[in-house]
Simulated scan of single mutants.
Amino acid sequence: MDVSFCRTGVRKYPPHQVEVEAIQQKTTQIFHKVYFPDDTDQAFEVDSSTRAKDFCQNIANRLSLKSAEGFSLFVKIADKVISVPEGDFFFDFVRHLTDWIKKARPNRDGTTPSFTYQVFFMKKLWTNTVPGKDRNADIIFHYHQELPKLLRGYQKCSIEEAVQLAAYIYRVKYGEDTTKLNGQSIQYLLKELLPQDLIKTQNLNDWRKQILAAYNRDQGKTPDEAKIGFLKLIFKWPTFGSAFFEVKQTTEPNFPDILLIAINKHGVNLINPVTKEILVTHPFTKISNWSSGNTYFHMTIGNLVRGSKLLCETSLGYKMDDLLTSYISLMLTTMQKHQTLRRH
């Protein structure tokens, strides 16, 4: 069967349950709820001919984003969050995914489980993301997607940077109200403000004083300005806009067994999880092959015969695989555009 034909014309799967219900109720209007990283959601009209790319563009238009580039729809089902390929019909993808999950996980008594799913819209590829260029994207997406990575302690961050970032986060959460910083629950508050591996490096009172001083220096800033200030600071780091994966590697004797892998616009970065030092960055142009399964992710750097291999144990291989494929395909598309422009 010609795959390109599926992509352009005929749908590959029978109608999704949501479509069937709409047809039975004699309506072709289906409104689908989409969740955003800032904890808001909106309903969008989708029909059976809606492709993921059009759906993304509709969302970008509604939210007044300057561009939909790098954004993707994600379907969360069971314990997986899977990105929807932009050329796919939205409902086909959901139907295929629910069928696949049902087959993969039958109930103990042999009956078919029913799974509900949620749809998220998020930034996936950060190739051209510069804080301050698209205010709405910064406020709704970039800040809320980068914050959890900071708090998990994945990036190399100095005490001074942590203090300034904590002041921004505090302003976003609590605005002009400083009572929380003077309250008794400071140790719980710090978990919301600082990378987890840094909290113990100073006593609570020192953190409180320094964060309050940094907060007061930014008097008059709005919570939205604080979000952009936060992004502009971490934009200087080589790990800005990364997806992080903790893996067990079995091929590099000179590297720790447990590695942090950051996939971002620079390529695949291997990081020491204790020191946060980047041990090596493999640019996309040097990665010749990769594969993934339920328990692994494998990658070849350099040519297939004499190249080096990186073998990792992880349950998130499918995400690493998809990110690598997507970044490389964006890179190739961009290169083709430049070549076409040069010819003309």
Rank of each mutant, 00 (worst) to 15 (best):
I234H: 00
A226N: 04
L198E: 02
P238T: 07
I258N: 12
P238Y: 02
L198T: 08
L260C: 11
A213L: 12
Q196T: 14
T250D: 12
K173G: 13
E176I: 11
F255W: 15
S185R: 12
Y215L: 11
N182H: 11
F235N: 03
P256V: 01
Y174K: 04
N272R: 02
L204D: 13
G229F: 05
P273S: 04
I186R: 05
E192M: 05
L189N: 05
D177N: 15
Y296F: 15
I211S: 00
K173H: 10
D197P: 02
F284I: 03
A213C: 01
L231C: 05
Y215H: 13
F244Y: 14
A262Q: 03
H266V: 02
K209H: 09
T285I: 09
L279Q: 05
E277V: 10
R171H: 06
T222C: 07
A226I: 06
F235K: 04
T251K: 13
K232G: 00
Q249F: 07
H266A: 15
A243Y: 13
K180T: 02
N203G: 04
K236L: 13
Q219T: 14
E225G: 06
I186A: 03
F284S: 06
N254I: 10
I186Q: 05
T281M: 05
L259Q: 11
K221L: 12
I234V: 15
I261H: 01
F255T: 08
T251I: 09
F240R: 02
N269V: 01
W207P: 09
E225L: 11
A226P: 10
S288Q: 12
V274N: 12
N216E: 14
G175E: 14
L204T: 15
W290N: 05
A166K: 08
N264T: 08
Q210R: 12
L190K: 11
N289E: 10
I271C: 04
G183I: 07
V172N: 08
G183W: 09
P223L: 06
Q196K: 14
K236P: 00
K276D: 04
N269T: 03
H282S: 05
W207H: 06
F230S: 00
I261Y: 00
I261A: 00
P253Q: 09
I228W: 07
V274Y: 07
H266D: 15
N254R: 13
L279C: 01
F245A: 01
H298M: 08
Q196E: 15
T250Q: 11
T251F: 10
A167I: 12
